[in-house]
Design a protein around this nucleic acid. Structure first.
Lengths: 252, 252
DNA sequence: CATGTATGTACCACGATATGGAATGATACA
DNA sequence: TGTATCATTCCATATCGTGGTACATACATG
């Protein structure tokens, strides 16, 4: 927020209003003005504008606001292309391995979940679209990092504090680097209960025409089913499929 | 746009910029300024603001822009609740009938697709999330309308021009009303190839605590498998499940 | 029923702020 | 090397957003 470059005040404020719905799914004008620290009148004008555009919707009864359909629609336009391209591959993977499959994107130091196909098993892993997790803790994150140069990886890790999620979470940046090195050799990365106990993932990177890996696909399942053999099979299949996808994006 | 009530110019313009990515997935400053009819300099300031907030992302190579991850994330926050509640029901339905299941919301005169579970069949119906269709042409739309009063239905139909999609599309508003009446009695509505040849749907409305039906669930399949018997079974099951969901939302 | 305290909404004068002209960099292409 | 097209910066102007204040309405509370 302190970076150089002027920004348009009212646009920033409008976005802040949208973000205030992160904690609360329904808010009134006064509440919003408190959260955003805007004058009630100013907030009202911005809210009205957002409502007219459909980014906010007013409840007919309570008169309070919630996020609008137009915001949802705009959201579906983001990465629509890559999601459409990957969809059949996700489908193939869930059919072949019967475990949950995820498509994720890089978002600075985080990984954000874009799309998924759930495992048919009743014991399964399920992550909501829009969820964000640190790169270093996910198979997909490590997979994407494995395509970067040592300097770039150092840059990323420099800005990260390794938070401990489980007893298996990597706490040493050198360990992370080692795993990334392993991923470089195999073409895919693994997460063995580093984020959540009992949860194991295998992930491989997707490259675009510039060679950048901004997307990745993973297969996630419970520890018990994700044996070493299974992980190897999945990993190799992931490499096959993500290579095909990368080609479609113009990468050679 | 001509309605009374002041709106904040720069916010309107920022939203227009986001919307200009409907046709094009990647745009430069000049292109955007042409599409939105804004001065290049004005557009630049707005774009920078949106970029800093993550609603737009700049491609490192081309320097051009595309919609950003933050916009996607905001989009996932919309209706997150209802989607979470309905997810297990969608799952049940796709398991029971092996046809594609959709969750939709009402969006004025349109229906917008929120979530889906695809049929396991290779011949199947698949609609992208974010797609919008006229109410009168979909099973879900007619299902939602069936909960409204005659006056409200008249209001909706007054503002609609019945476009012909297939040879089965209803062209007479009285026909639509008849179908809505049928839906009122059965509790679910049908679409028999009205939108697309070979595509048949059954849909039932979800009510919230105020009694309004802003959401609906449908099962869609190819004509050949969606026989009269099957449609009846699906319809009755849909009514069961949507009643359960409505209860969870506080409707009695 | 009156009183108090919330709420959302309308009005408007002031001045900060967004605007758009014009100039400058940056890049690609021929 | 020159030309065209792009993104970006600067800045004076007046437009537009701002935030006072005020009012309307709803709902508790005494």
């Amino acid at each position: 927020m302190s970076k150089e470059g002027k920004t348009i005040q009212s646009v920033d404020r409008a976005i802040a209003i949208l973000r205030s719905f992160e904690q609360n799914e329904e808010l009134g004008v006064t509440e919003i003005s408190k959260i955003t620290e805007l004058h009630k009148s100013t907030a009202f004008n911005l809210i009205s504008t957002l409502e007219k555009a459909g980014l906010l919707a007013k409840e007919p009864n309570s008169g309070r606001y919630r996020l609008g359909m137009e915001l949802f629609r705009l959201g579906t336009m983001v990465n629509a292309n890559i999601r459409a391209i990957c969809e059949p591959y996700l489908e193939m993977l869930v059919n072949e391995f019967s475990e949950t499959v995820n498509l994720v994107a890089r978002n600075d130091l985080l990984v954000i979940y874009l799309d998924k196909k759930d495992s048919p098993h009743s014991m399964r892993i399920s992550t909501e679209e829009g969820t964000r997790l640190p790169m270093y803790i996910t198979a997909v994150g490590k997979a994407m990092m494995s395509t970067l140069s040592d300097d770039e990886i150092k840059d990323i890790l420099k800005n990260v504090r390794l938070m401990k999620f489980t007893e298996y979470t990597l706490t040493d940046k050198e360990e992370v680097k080692l795993q990334i090195q392993a991923a470089r050799e195999k073409g895919y990365a693994e997460d063995l209960q580093e984020y959540e106990n009992g949860l194991t993932c295998v992930g491989a990177p997707i490259r675009d025409h510039t060679g950048r890996a901004n997307y990745a696909i993973s297969v996630s399942g419970p520890n018990s089913r994700m044996t070493k053999d299974v992980r190897k099979k999945i990993g190799e299949r992931l490499v096959e499929l993500t290579t095909q996808i990368s080609k479609k994006l113009g990468y050679y």
